[in-house]
Structures are given as C-alpha cells and as structure tokens.
Design a protein around this nucleic acid. Structure first.
Lengths: 341, 341
DNA sequence: CTGAAAGCGCTTACAG
DNA sequence: CTGAAAGCGCTTACAG
C-alpha cells in the first residue's frame, strides 16, 4: 500500500542516463549540460524525489542529526531551550533527536549511548542534577562533540552556554536591598545543583557587598526544589523568632509556594516580606501578587548552543576552546517586590 | 582529536576473522562456535563497540526513528504528550525527532517533508490549527505511516488518538448545570480548530439534554484563543444586559483570563459566575480561586499513539483500519465551580 | 563452523 | 559532457 520512494537509480533508468549523471544534475554540478539538468530536475520534481539523507550521510559519516538530552521536558524553560535548538538546527539543515534523563544519572548515560548509536553528529545536554560521576560524559566527549547548556558543570571540559547565574542572583538580591530589605532568606538546593550553587554565590556576594550579615538560619537547602518545598520552607521561616523581610527562592515554583504560604499567614507582600523567584515561568504572572523574577532567554541559549556545536562538528580537528558563554538575563520587577504607593 | 568509532571491519582484522563472522557472533547467530563468539564479544565490549544503526537501517530501509510534529512545544500539555511518546518509543528501540509547526500550515508541510527526507519510519502529528488543505498530509500518508494525536481531523483517513473531547465538554457543562447554573457562556475558537469544535458540540448537547436555551450572545468565538482573549471576551460578557452565570472556556488560558477579569469586576466566583477550563494546566492550581478543568492524560495519549504507529510500521501491507481511539479524560472539580459552604 | 560477495542509495575521483 | 566503479558499515543468502 505504501508507494515506493523514488531513488536516483529509478530516475536514471527512466531517463536512460547513469546514476552519476542524475546525481550531478540534481546537485547542479557544472559539468552537466543544461538540457540534461532540466530533464532530470523536471522528473525529480514530478515524482517528488527527496534524497535519502542517510545514504548521503552514511557515506560522509554524517547524519545531520543533533541529540538533545534534558532532565525534564515538561518544564517551561526547557521547552524554550528546545524551541531555540529546533529553530537554529532547522536553519542549518539539522534535525533534532530529543530525550529525557528524568534527572536520573543512569538514564542520562543510557541516553548518551543511544545518541551515539543513532549516529548523531553532536550532543547538546542539560545535565541532570546529582551528576557526580562525570566519567560517562567524558567518554562521550571522546567520540562526539558535546556542548552543555543551562545546567552545566565546571568539571567537564567542553563548551558551555549558560546564563549569568551568579550575576543574575546578585542583581535580584541587590534589588531587594535597594527596596530596603535587610534580612533576606534564600531557598536553594544542595551543592550538586549547578544552577543553585551559582545563584547562592550571587546571593552571598550581594550580602557581603552591602555589609549584611549572613545568617544560616535563613539559608534553607532542599534536595529537590518545588512549589511544595517552597511552602514548607516558608513555614519554617515563619516559625523563626527573627523572620526575614524578603525571600529569594532560586526557582519560580518555590517562590510561588512561598507566596501562597505567606498569604495564608496574612503576611503583606511585599511590605512585610518581599519575594523574588527565578525563571520567569508562565505561573509567575498568574500568582497574585505577580512575581518578580529573572527572565532567562531560553530560546537564545538554545540557539547559541547549536551554533557552537555545529562549529565543533564542522571543525573536528581544531583543538577545543571550551569557552563558557554567558547569555544575559534580566530581572523582571513585579508586584511581589515593588510596592505601588 | 575524536577517536575513531569501532567498526565490524576493524574488529575482524584485529581478531583475524571475517566481517561476517564477527557480525554473526555479535548477533548470537547459532552457527558460530561459542569460543569465537566469546572472543568477539569480549573485544566488542573492550572497545565499546556500538553498531552503526544507520548502516543497519539503511540496508533494511529502516531508521528506527519516529518523527513528531506539534504546533507548539511550549504548551505544557504538549510536553506531556511528548514525554509519553519518548518513553514508549524508547522502550521499543525507537528514537524521536521533534519539530514544531508553530501553527503554520506551510511550515507543517515543510516539517513533514524533512521527516521523510530524514527517513523516519513513521510520523506522529498534532495538526496545526487552520489546516484546511489536507493534500500535503495525504501525500505523506502514501509514503509513510502516520498517526494523528490530540489535534486530529475527521477528514484524514488514518489512525487518530484523541481524548473524548465531546464527552468531556458535555460532562463539564453538565457539572455546571448540576451546581445550579442555567445561563452558561462558552469561549471557543472557529470551526477550523478540531478540539474547539468537539468541545462546542459537547456544550450544545448538554444544553439540549437539559432543555436550556442556546443563546448566540453568550457563544463567543475567537481566532486564536489565549489568556488575553479570555479577558476580552469576559469583558464583553460583563457588558451584556443578561449576564451569564457560568463560563465554559475551552482552554485553561482563556478560563484564567476570565477569572482575572471577573475578579476585577468584583464578581463572586463561583457564586455569581462559575468558571470551567480545559487541560488541567499547571496554572490552573496557581490562579485563585483554583480552576475546575478537564484533565487530559497526555502521556497516555502519546504512548498509545506510538503503539499504533509502530504496529503500522511493522505491518506495512495490512490494510489500515484507521480507528479513532478515545482516551478518557476526567473533570477535576476545584474552587471555581464548587462553593465551599 | 567460517568466508566471499552482493546490496541498501548516494557521491566522487577517475576515465574517456 | 557522461559513465563505470569504489566505498560508507552492515546483514545475509550462498558456498564450502
């Protein structure tokens, strides 16, 4: 029931030409007479000839496919990364195989291996939280160009495209200080989360620069940050004798959990306690008050990562430079920090 | 700098065997002596041999890759579809190429063509809104197995995996009637949106079954439904002499826009006007009051679609049955319709 | 039990 | 200007 897909051979027979000539005619090789070229191209469009890119790539050891591994595809920010990747890849004639690691290190390695098996030309990866064992990733790098994006790692010597995490967090905390906050809590993750560590560093630097004390009691660390964790941590903060006057949650989810809990406690936001999140997720404008947060240009990060990856694919013998490219993010100020007088 | 990838030929030379023997040994062919088999397999795992799936697939006219085309990858529901697709595909040894049509019919056709060019074994698609020209899709069907999911079309003769749109909408409206609502507005899209039409049909059937009048003035149709459109349509509803006592928005976004607008008008939700959405998006529990909505099992739909697609791939000559498979969805009742006494 | 050879669809250096 | 041939990595019917 399926029609047979047209091939060079079939067209060559039909036209009484050799396969080579047909191939050259379609690729606009200068040797071919314009008459032959026209005949071939006419037939090609008539039968809707589409070159088999694998036969092509198989010869050239190239599939024009990029592999993408992300921890969780349902996160809005991740989808913006992917959109950027798809667009840029498409412009450059690449397709994209996507897979999820579910923040599972074993699965992450598995995914990398199938990527190799499927012959991708390079891999883009946001690494899973809790990736302590770098070996499997290093192995991939010996076989294939690899670029990390968003969730990166200082320990892996490859090109990384990230946002200015530390600076963005610094700016967020500085904003809280500027609106008069002096006791700023943070809800963060453990040291195995790249993003969390960077944001925490920005938080610490801002407090130091403005001579604010660092108080362990309002530095809350959770294993796997979420809205629920934001609620729980905020309850802990509300039970303190010395309550904070601001909360910097390193994800929007946790920040929204914080806002929900503060509202239950009848705390005025931002007058009593201001809240800042991170990501500019869709939810951040649904919650009331709307959330001040850091907008991360996911699409740009994705597109940039593709550019660097293809550069490495096209120049396999150039010694790698392994830059870390920081894409700028912006603080979006909304009602959760800005009291409208 | 990149290591050469091990091949059968390289291993054959190293072991002093023929390529055929090495191939058979790795595939556990019964002819091979267990000693040879062991030697080969030992070397294979030592050099970390990974078969080139394209050389393999190229021979068998099979790439073990599925193509996915969705209108918009950033929609949460779409990511759950994709997650289901990725999981099921992975279990069955397939990889997935993803692409976005951005609800652009031309781009959708382009994507389908590159899918063919990249030699996918089959395609899963959520069709773009406003797809009036079916020809390009029918063409694909002659070349490749195609299964539609979620956003389908009665006009395309292929297997379709959808939710029970009509019934779900009926149940949602029935729920509004059960809590005492009698003048139920609907915010929907034009007739070129498959989902909208089905949901509208369910709305009409419920009103008829319960002998409620159908009033064109509270049936609002927009081109491209969104939160903003939900706000605008709700403003229109609030300007009517005879206001509705409930709003059924065919997406959560529009429902949330409705709630935001109703709150501005100081309307009590659900006492004065109840609101129901559709999708159970993440936002639906962030908005206050929390939104009653229809939960769509995206992951299951995705996984189911993969099963049917692979079935077609494996049985190319069986005459297609072109079933429409309906996956059940559930109404999730929350504060926007249920007054807690 | 093992090997030589053909072939999947394409490109390209080599002839003519 | 055109064609015959090799080769990309693999599997498999055919020999032996």
């Amino acid at each position: 029931m399926k029609k047979s897909i047209p091939t060079l051979k079939a067209m060559a027979e039909q036209l009484g030409l050799s396969i080579s000539t047909v191939s050259r005619a379609l690729n606009n090789h200068p040797d071919i007479s314009s008459e032959t070229r026209k005949r071939v191209q006419a037939l090609a469009s008539e039968v809707n000839y589409i070159p088999n890119i694998f036969a092509k790539g198989f010869r050239a050891h190239k599939t024009n496919i990029l592999g993408v591994v992300v921890p969780n595809i349902t996160h809005y920010f991740t989808t913006t990364l992917i959109r950027g990747i798809l667009e840029e890849a498409s412009l450059r004639g690449y397709r994209v195989i996507v897979s999820e690691s579910n923040n599972d290190v074993v699965k992450q390695t598995e995914m990398l291996n199938t990527m190799i098996q499927f012959g991708v030309d390079g891999v883009l990866m946001s690494i899973s939280k809790m990736t302590r064992d770098i070996d499997s990733i290093l192995k991939v790098m010996h076989t294939l160009p690899l670029v990390l994006l968003d969730k990166a790692s200082n320990k892996i010597p490859c090109t990384q495209v990230v946002i200015n995490e530390e600076e963005a967090a610094y700016n967020a905390v500085e904003h809280l200080i500027n609106i008069g906050k002096k006791r700023i809590a943070i809800i963060k993750e453990t040291q195995f989360s790249y993003n969390s560590e960077k944001r925490f560093a920005g938080y610490l630097r801002a407090l130091k620069d403005y001579n604010l004390p660092i108080d362990e009691k309002i530095i809350l660390t959770v294993e796997d940050i979420s809205l629920t964790q934001g609620e729980q941590m905020t309850n802990i903060l509300m039970s303190l004798k010395e309550k904070p006057d601001a909360i910097f949650a390193i994800t929007d989810g946790a920040a929204i959990g914080a806002i929900k809990t503060l509202k239950k406690h009848k705390v005025k936001i931002p007058e009593d306690i201001a809240v800042v999140g991170f990501s500019n997720s869709l939810n951040s404008t649904i919650i009331e008050p709307q959330l001040t947060t850091v907008d991360q240009p996911g699409q740009k990060i994705g597109a940039t990562a593709v550019k660097y990856l293809i550069q490495e694919i096209d120049n396999p013998n150039v010694e790698l430079i392994n830059k870390t490219i920081e894409v700028r993010s912006n603080l979006i100020i909304r009602d959760s920090t800005l009291s409208i007088k």
